[in-house]
Design a binder for these strands. Structure first.
Length: 741
DNA sequence: GCGACTGACTTTGAT
DNA sequence: AGTCAGTCGC
């Protein structure tokens, strides 16, 4: 619906700032939109989408818009619909994977699949890989399957099919068999007519590379491409976008939105280089910087800017505060004794804010790792403050849901061996691993899936006794459900199947506390099936789209990881655990060196910029890691925040009583000069009863409480490798040995 | 085939 | 410390 070009400024453009308008009205040619935190990125993206439609530049079906999460896709869809005044139909708007799945169903035959292929979940992937690894007779202790899964995924992230893995890309993992296993795994996936998540991208890139006619078809369809969170793209995603965007004639109308300072997913294959390289990849690209921040106070922005300035190789942005309440509070830095005190202080601050009328839903505690939530949960529970944990187990990852889905998959596609294996003995029907092995053996001699092998064995009488009875009744349950599916639809059929197979009864008989909840989840699942026209439609939805993002508007404090907080905002943000080793994470530093440090710093930047009004950073002097106490130094990131934007607060156990009466949110006491004045290069434990981890020379004789005397043969940071006289070679923390000579 | 025991591990996690 | 998976023995 073309719009009269004479109308000067349409309403949807009127309330945008000049840079935002430029990002929207630069419609032709490649465009990189560098959108800092809180600069209205989503608004620009959705308005741009609507603008392309309203100015008649494209029909809805001619725009490709990709995001990383379903949540982002849903949000974009809703907001585009709101601008258009009607729900937008026929859009190519979705996650990379959902869009690739849609494409791949059209062209599956080019990679040896049929359009009805299944999409494996993480569970199935690993089970399948283990099966593939078996004939290689590897020591699974030394070569854990999940690590190999990681290697294969990284290959896929980089667009490498087995044939494209060069010797330089190969690994000696699994005694050099990794590539062979990868090849066998891919072969098996094809036999099963399935894909894992990585394949959705990988196969489509292969098809677009090798089938010029298919590529040309998409070039004709997509006139404009929009990409969200470009800094998070990995290599296959980049290749896919480039193939679709670069055409022989005419410009590449690709607009990518991203922020190099918020790239925090390199461990998942994301390449920041993609965004840093954009102008080279797409010559003549326009670059628009969105630097007007509408979220945070000037103090918070300046603090965050000072911190992120310590990173090198940035594209560079300067966020300007746009809020009316310009100045605001300084970032508070609180030093505490240990994690218990940390939880008490944060809990107390939350109570005080709440008493002052601040809603709990505007407060969040953001931590580096998921397990750090525990002390906070306990504390909040004790003082009766409602909280919610964001992230964690998703609905469809729960065992009972996966079991039900497996039943449904077999019902929909009896050839789905992986699903059948999952439920063949759930509930327990006396068909164990050995029996499954036998079935497998037979299935291999005949063509066809396991379910067919089972039927053959029942007919031929090869199966006997208990397992024959059990499997006969299971197969009958599937047949009855199949009939019901045609007459009464999927909800009734699935319910009947779960009943007949004894699956529901299994949970009714279960006396554990979780059982009733699990039955509730299953009921919820059955309800959800009804919202789809077909069982297959539902299964596709589950594999790619289903998230349980329950839009809870309850007044609760949010607890989540820093990663999980990206894209969200709160009035008040608590940032606990800012200690060397915890944040930045030692493990991350060990693996990735300076590159990893910069990513940790970006994570800190993401954390700070979630706050609208106040950010409170907390660090503890000692923390229990696994079993033992460790002295800890404040994070270097604290030092890196310019001191003028920081207020040192804090309190000791003794001064907490005064805190309640004090006017400020945190009493400051004489015990609390916890801000490091100049960062020591080596963290030095401040607890007196452990040995300082000072230089332990190789060759020194040391004594360990448990292992006795030994000789140091290597030093690795704070860990020592020691040859003990009667314990062999062990790696222990330097803190736990005494130097004898 | 199932339950008990051992031992290994413990960052981040969308699709 | 606690969990979870994998192995072992009955």
């Amino acid at each position: 619906m073309p719009q009269d070009p004479l109308i000067p400024t349409p309403e949807y453009l009127s309330r945008l700032n000049p840079e935002q308008r430029r990002a929207i009205e630069t419609t032709e040619g490649p465009l990189l939109i560098l959108a800092g935190a809180g600069t209205g990125k989503t608004r620009v993206l959705t308005t741009r989408f609507a603008h392309l439609l309203l100015t008649g530049r494209a029909y809805p079906s001619q725009i490709l818009a990709v995001t990383f999460t379903n949540k982002a896709a849903r949000e974009m869809r809703e907001r585009v619909g709101a601008i258009l005044g009607e729900p937008a139909e026929g859009l190519w708007l979705g996650t990379f994977h959902a869009i690739c799945a849609r494409m791949l169903r059209r062209h599956a035959e080019y990679v040896g699949l049929t359009s009805g292929f299944n999409i494996l979940d993480t569970d199935d992937q690993l089970r399948l890989l283990k099966q593939i690894m078996e004939p290689f007779r590897l020591d699974t202790k030394r070569w854990p399957p999940n690590q190999l899964m990681g290697i294969i995924q990284r290959w896929k992230d980089r667009g490498l099919t087995p044939d494209r893995v060069t010797p330089a890309e190969d690994t000696d993992f699994a005694n050099g068999h990794a590539l062979a296993i990868y090849r066998a795994y891919q072969l098996r996936l094809r036999e099963l007519n399935t894909c894992d998540f990585g394949d959705l991208m990988l196969h489509m890139v292969e098809i677009l590379r090798s089938q010029p006619n298919v590529l040309a078809q998409y070039h004709r369809i997509f006139r404009y491409i929009l990409v969200d969170e470009y800094q998070d793209t990995n290599t296959v995603q980049y290749l896919w976008l480039r193939l679709l965007a670069k055409r022989e004639h005419g410009p590449s109308n690709i607009a990518c939105v991203g922020d190099d300072d918020q790239s925090i997913y390199s461990w998942r294959g994301a390449e920041v280089e993609n965004i840093l390289r954009f102008e080279k990849d797409f010559p003549g690209a326009a670059v628009v910087r969105l630097e007007q921040n509408y979220r945070s106070t000037a103090q918070i922005l300046a603090a965050a800017a000072g911190l992120i300035a310590h990173n090198e190789g940035r594209l560079g942005k300067t966020l300007r505060p746009g809020r009316e309440d310009a100045q605001g509070e300084k970032v508070q830095i609180i030093g505490v004794r240990d994690s218990d005190e940390e939880a008490r202080i944060v809990g107390g601050a939350i109570e005080r804010l709440q008493a002052d009328g601040h809603p709990l839903s505007e407060m969040a505690i953001l931590m580096r790792a998921g397990f750090q939530t525990r002390p906070f949960e306990e504390r909040l529970m004790t003082i009766g403050v409602p909280y919610r944990i964001v992230g964690g187990l998703r609905f469809y990852e729960r065992a009972e849901i996966r079991d039900c889905l497996a039943y449904m998959r077999v019902l929909s596609q009896p050839s789905d061996d992986l699903a059948f294996e999952r439920i063949i003995n759930v509930p327990k029907r006396g068909v164990g691993a050995v029996a499954v092995q036998k079935l497998h053996g037979l299935a291999r001699t005949l063509p066809g899936p396991l379910t067919a092998a089972v039927l053959t064995q029942i007919e031929q009488g090869t199966l006997k006794g208990k397992s024959k009875e059990a499997l006969t009744s299971l197969m009958e349950a599937f047949q009855r459900a199949k009939a019901t599916l045609e007459t009464e639809g999927q909800v009734v059929a699935v319910e009947q199947l779960l009943e007949d197979s004894g699956y529901l009864q299994m949970w009714r008989d279960d006396r554990s506390v979780e059982a009733p909840g699990r039955l509730d989840n299953i009921r919820e699942l059955l309800r959800a099936i009804g919202e789809f026209a077909t069982l297959e439609g539902f299964l596709e939805h589950v594999a790619l789209v289903m998230d349980t993002e329950s839009e809870t508007t309850d007044d609760k404090v949010s607890l989540m990881t820093l990663h999980g907080s990206k894209g969200l905002e709160f009035d008040t943000v608590f940032l606990p655990g800012w200690e060397e080793g915890v944040f930045p994470s030692q493990r991350s530093l060990d693996e990735g060196g300076n590159r990893a440090l910069e990513e940790e710093r970006r994570l800190a930047y993401v954390g700070l910029t979630r706050a609208r009004l106040r950010a409170i950073v907390v660090h503890a002097a000692s923390r229990r890691i696994y079993a033992n106490w460790q002295a800890s130094m404040p994070s270097r990131f604290i030092e890196e925040i310019p001191s003028e934007y920081v207020q040192i607060g804090g309190q000791s156990v003794e001064s907490r009583r005064q805190a309640a009466a004090a006017p400020s949110m945190f009493a400051s006491g004489p015990f609390t000069s916890t801000r490091p004045s100049g960062m020591p290069q080596t963290p030095r434990p401040r607890i007196t009863d452990v040995q300082p981890q000072a230089n332990v020379p190789v060759g020194a004789t040391v004594f360990h409480q448990k292992f006795g005397e030994g000789t140091v043969i290597a030093v690795d940071g704070s860990r020592l490798e020691i040859n003990f006289e009667n314990g062999g070679i062990k790696r222990v923390m330097a803190n736990f040995v005494e130097i004898r000579s």
